[in-house]
Amino acid sequence: MAALWRQVSIALATFAAVSNASAASGAPVPEKPKLHLAAAGVGFPYLPFVIADSRGYFKQAGLDVEIGVFSGGAKALQAMMGGSADIVAGAYSNTITMAAKGQKLVSFVTLASCPGWVFGATRASHAKVKTYADLKGMRIGVSSPGSSFHMGVNYLLSKSGVKPSDVSIIGVGSSAGAIAAARSGQIDALMSNDPVATVLQDSGDLFPLAVMRDPAGTRATLGGDYPEAAIYTSKDFLVKYPNTVQAVTNAILEAERWMAHATPEQVAAAVPPQYALAEKDVFARAYANMQSCISRDGLMTDAAAHTVHDVLTAFDPEIGKASIDLKATYDNHFVENADKR
């Protein structure tokens, strides 16, 4: 009986702590305070969730978030579809590709309004690679096959008439594995983001063919704004746990607002060592290279969603043929509600 009362007391204390945190912020109590977040990586487009965790914004919103970092968006998506994760910090494009398969996924807060991608030749092959067409027959590293990095590669190659079957795609992750693969000569080219891209450029191991570290570079390369990173979940989860989704949104927006005014050095200092991927000075310099990609308001625009759809369609005709309601792949009202608090 005493053990039972201890369990009841612990449960009540936990509930009270969550309730007090939510009450203090004026937000409803999350229906599911303990969450599992699957992250496609810890590249800079995903930094808002890292900051939300390290600076305590998730806890302030009444959430206990367990983060699992995967080697690419495809694997993070698999984790959620398999039931081991509730939400994903990954590519918005996954909501569209899954919609083409009849799966209803919804992005509810944008992390990055441009991809921050750097696509280039590695030291082993840069003398032979001057254009996308030169990559025919070569090995190209991406975070994981089927990821947004992979889709971006296919789109860029298609502009030069190179088909997906003309190259070998190799999954190398998006952090230390990508750096090792580029330096060891395992790949001829790499699609990466920061800080990996800055680390490799600084050491002379990556020679860019395309740089999408800011809105202007993204529009020039992809034809419009391209929201690479977002927090998304299933439509069922969104409907069942709206207060929880609102709490996640509130925490992410707090992180984005803080990042908008923080210096690169302050951001670097706020990132835990397991997520840093580089020394603090290198990290700060890399972040300065692409910080304009980080969303400041968490919103998705209809035009940006169409750009992502157009990029996907360029190399996957099935997506173009599918009947997809793009407005159903994102929901801005949680961001809009956060602004009313």
Rank of each mutant, 00 (worst) to 15 (best):
A269Q: 12
D310W: 08
A286C: 10
K240D: 05
E336K: 14
P145C: 14
M191P: 04
R285G: 05
L37F: 05
K327G: 08
K159N: 09
A79C: 10
S107Y: 10
T233L: 08
P33F: 08
G224K: 13
I51F: 02
P45T: 12
P28W: 13
S54F: 10
V245T: 04
R296K: 14
L312D: 03
G102Y: 12
K75G: 00
L200R: 09
R219H: 09
A328Q: 15
S203P: 06
A303R: 10
Y57V: 02
A338R: 06
D325H: 06
A16H: 08
T301E: 01
F108H: 06
I67E: 01
L37S: 00
D236N: 12
A91K: 04
A181Q: 07
V308I: 13
M191K: 08
I51R: 01
A270R: 04
L299I: 07
E318V: 12
S165G: 13
I324Q: 03
D214P: 05
A133Q: 13
L111E: 02
V142M: 09
I169M: 15
E66K: 13
A304I: 04
T14I: 07
S22C: 14
P195I: 14
P33D: 01
L222P: 02
V109S: 03
S25F: 07
G224W: 05
L77N: 04
S295A: 06
S158K: 15
G83L: 10
L77Q: 03
W117F: 13
S168V: 14
A89W: 03
A38Y: 02
D331S: 10
A268S: 14
G82W: 05
A39L: 14
F283E: 01
I231Q: 06
A85C: 05
P208R: 07
Y275N: 00
H333T: 13
Y155M: 10
D316C: 11
V109L: 11
K59D: 00
K104M: 06
A100I: 12
S174L: 11
F149G: 02
A270G: 04
